[in-house]
């Protein structure tokens, strides 16, 4: 029954994502675009955190690498959308492979600190390398490239067009992550989260597997970053700063790290809260904090995780009653 309810909710959600924007104004569509992109970013983070047990505090590095690569490719080489996004993904993946090579040598809090350190090194790199990155101003003034589907070229200039493009890309990569987490590889990752030492005694080189997971997570974060740079018409150092790394952490825990779509729901909650609260007051962070604190205390598995376990309990009661 829970499974059925889940399928219905999922189908309704996807239907909503496709249908609603056709009837919505520009502002909600823009908001939704940002949500979809950050949902993917948070999901990619959760491959490391929820599935592998590694809390990364530098995930923005790969979001930013993707964003900067995208902006540079579009500005200097006039690549069209898909090739540019593909190259940005590879750049971020390469960055993750290099940084991950060092970070996976440690775990727990030390891993978090190493990722923070390397993430901020990337931040200072983009901040200081003015000739390439424009320093603190970032890269602006480029046109959103065309979507070249061989048979036809589409402009992604309008918010609606870009939204649908971003949505399809994000859904595809969400599917990619879902596939990974439900594969034998995903089982090994989850086992490492539970008990990394034990995994090494069943014949798995845990560092190698962590490294692969780190690289994959960076790859997908790069896609999200590339999309975000196009959405924002800008690649700026804030994309790489540690406060950006904190966002997926927040979203994932908010939504639930042990449920695949938890971080995506977390992204939705995060943006809806921001949107509604900033209508009334400038200082929305105080409210975010005030909402975050009880959620952390009362929803130990995150919002989605807790909802699902309520559903299970309800079902258990029905089964016993019937």
């Amino acid at each position: 029954m829970v499974r059925g309810a889940r399928t219905i909710a999922l189908a309704a959600g996807i239907l909503f994502l496709f249908v609603y924007p056709r009837f919505a104004g520009a502002f909600p569509v823009l908001l939704l675009t940002e949500i979809v992109i950050f949902a993917l970013f948070a999901l990619s983070f959760n491959l490391l955190f929820g599935y592998t047990g590694l809390l990364s505090f530098g995930h923005a590095a790969f979001f930013g690498l993707g964003g900067y690569a995208m902006a540079l490719l579009v500005q200097h080489y006039q690549l069209s959308m898909i090739p540019a996004l593909a190259v940005s993904m590879l750049v971020a993946g390469l960055g993750a492979a290099i940084i991950g090579f060092f970070c996976i040598r440690r775990d727990e809090i030390y891993f978090a600190m190493l990722t923070l350190g390397f993430g901020m090194m990337v931040f200072t790199l983009v901040h200081q390398w003015r000739s390439l990155t424009g320093g603190s101003d970032g890269i602006t003034g480029f046109e959103v490239p065309l979507l070249d589907l061989v048979v036809k070229k589409f402009s992604l200039f309008s918010p609606w067009a870009f939204y649908y493009f971003a949505l399809v890309v994000c859904l595809l990569f969400t599917l990619f992550l879902w596939r990974i987490t439900h594969s034998p590889f995903g089982l090994i990752l989850r086992s490492m989260r539970e008990n990394a030492e034990r995994v090494s005694f069943i014949g798995i080189d845990i560092k190698f597997y962590r490294w692969i997971a780190f690289t994959l997570a960076g790859l997908v974060a790069g896609v999200a970053g590339g999309l975000f740079a196009m959405y924002d018409r800008m690649a700026s150092p804030t994309m790489v700063h540690w406060t950006m790394s904190a966002k997926p952490v927040l979203m994932a825990i908010l939504g639930g790290t042990r449920v695949f779509l938890g971080p995506a729901l977390g992204a939705l909650i995060f943006y809806l809260l921001e949107h509604f609260i900033t209508q009334y007051t400038q200082s929305w962070m105080i409210f975010l904090g005030a909402i975050l604190v009880p959620i952390v205390i009362f929803f130990p598995q995150g919002v989605l995780g807790t909802l699902i376990s309520w559903g299970r309990r309800l079902k258990g009661r029905e089964d016993h009653g019937g």
Binding site: F185, L187, R190, S191, E194, R198, I202, G203
Partner: peptide, 27 residues
């Protein structure tokens, strides 16, 4: 020293995946 949050079956499966060299099967 087992994988507490995983199911019993998954505990065994993880070791089987490792033994049969299927750990890098992602897709």
């Amino acid at each position: 020293n087992i994988f507490l949050e995983n199911t019993v079956e998954e505990n065994i499966l993880a070791a089987l995946v490792a033994y049969h060299g299927r750990g890098l099967s992602l897709f």
